[in-house]
Design a binder for these strands. Sequence first.
DNA 1: TTCCGACAGTGGGGTCGCAAT
DNA 2: ATTGCGACCCCACTATCGGAA
Length: 513
Amino acid sequence: MLLARLAQVSREVAATSARSRKTALLAELFRETDPDDVPVVIPYLAGRLPQGRIGIGWKVLSRPVAPAGEPGLTVREVDARLTELAGVSGTGSQAERSRLVGELLGAATGDEQRFLFGLLTGEVRQGALDAVAVEGLAQATGAPPAGVRRAVMLAGSLQTVAEALLADGPPALARFRLTVGRPVLPMLAHSASSVAEAVQKLGAAAVEEKLDGIRVQAHRDGDTVRLYTRTLDDITDRLPEVTAAVRGLPGGRFVLDGEVISLDPGGRPRSFQETAGRVGSRADVATAARAVPVSPVFFDALSVAGRDLLDLPLAERHAELARLVPEPMRVRRTLVAGPQDVAAAEEFLAETLDRGHEGVVVKGVEAAYSAGRRGASWLKVKPVHTLDLVVLAAEWGHGRRTGKLSNLHLGARAADGSFAMLGKTFKGMTDAMLAWQTERLGALAVREHGWGVTVRPELVVEIAYDGLQRSSRYPAGVTLRFARVVRYREDKRPEDADTVQTLLAAHPEVTAP
DNA sequence: TTCCGACAGTGGGGTCGCAAT
DNA sequence: ATTGCGACCCCACTATCGGAA
């Protein structure tokens, strides 16, 4: 199949807003795909490379290359070239990679170049990724969509399921079962603004500690242990102490879901930055492990002794977990019968925060494990802080925000009367707010840049955030975590905005360097 | 008919590893 | 030694479609 055909379908998918039409377009393409091309065509139309990320980003792609006049590239040829690109490493490889990318783009028409650009940056922006591709695959093969979705979650790979389905038809779905050693897409949580709201929605629930660490899925089969992240990356080699802890558990064959976090000698959590830095370290693992040891804390069991637990209610999965994993390696939790127990849930949240943790996750006790989904039966509750800050600048948006001032630079008052930038945010704005702030900030602009405008520091905006963290980028030495706009405060003047000093005082656990 | 679940998009900060400077 | 880039951790929120209620 020609790459031009994929680029054309991608453009058509992007051009329609109806999801049903997007699905139909993908299904049509999948039906006409030669079996040999399936391992490439399916991921491409889901906006991903079968090789995963291959080290090519915006910078390398920003050099323009004259497009070819006629389309001639086949998807298999593109795939072969990208495999070669992914394999190039060692001294001088950067130049070689640039050359190979240039060569590939030079063989592509303008339309194909745009599609390749999207694939390589991971931003195809066609309004259809995995979920729509799964739907299209179901339609093309006559398999039930729910069955395809489930197989993809269990295989942790759309490509694998697509190959099996297009080769053998719907019966192939039966082959995909939870297998120890093969990671499953993890279940995710929604947010709730309070435990009362969460308990109201869920009824009988478990209220679990939410640890601010890295999600981990542990697979053990005898002496073999493998650890996977939320995106199913294998991080076993980076976490020897976790591997040892899992090997020390009594069961011989199981899959557990949990979090790894670094605790200080007093048992209080180290900052997320420290835990994440440790988990990200591959070079000298032994040294990193001595400096920042991490512990696993499990909260779910997906498989025990060859028995698949995914469809069982949380209560039963947790009973299996409790049989296998002793308390310090198991998440702290409390059970509530329903809204009448809100006070107990709130007390548990308060205790959890006192111990230095992030918040709680409230989970319906009857709910199955919805692999790969943001299930409505897991609701996280974290305290939210707010501040009044001043807009210092704004950046032009992209995609559907093109032409709108979108990303705000936020400042707090400093001791000398100036404003110290604390971070940026693009979150929380409705379309109406985007239009309004584009107008308003345009009027306040003192300087135009390619990226946006700097403005007179006069507009006050209420910002919600999850906490403070150290920063080497911003002048105050700190930045806001997950900042988002709540509302504009036109009733406030910049002199009324919060100060760096009060912000630091509100978060004594974070000390600016 | 209205409501709501699921998705995609729009980007945020930090840290590590690697190559270039 | 420092800097820049890319990958990958954490993530919030809004708009939209389409099925459920």
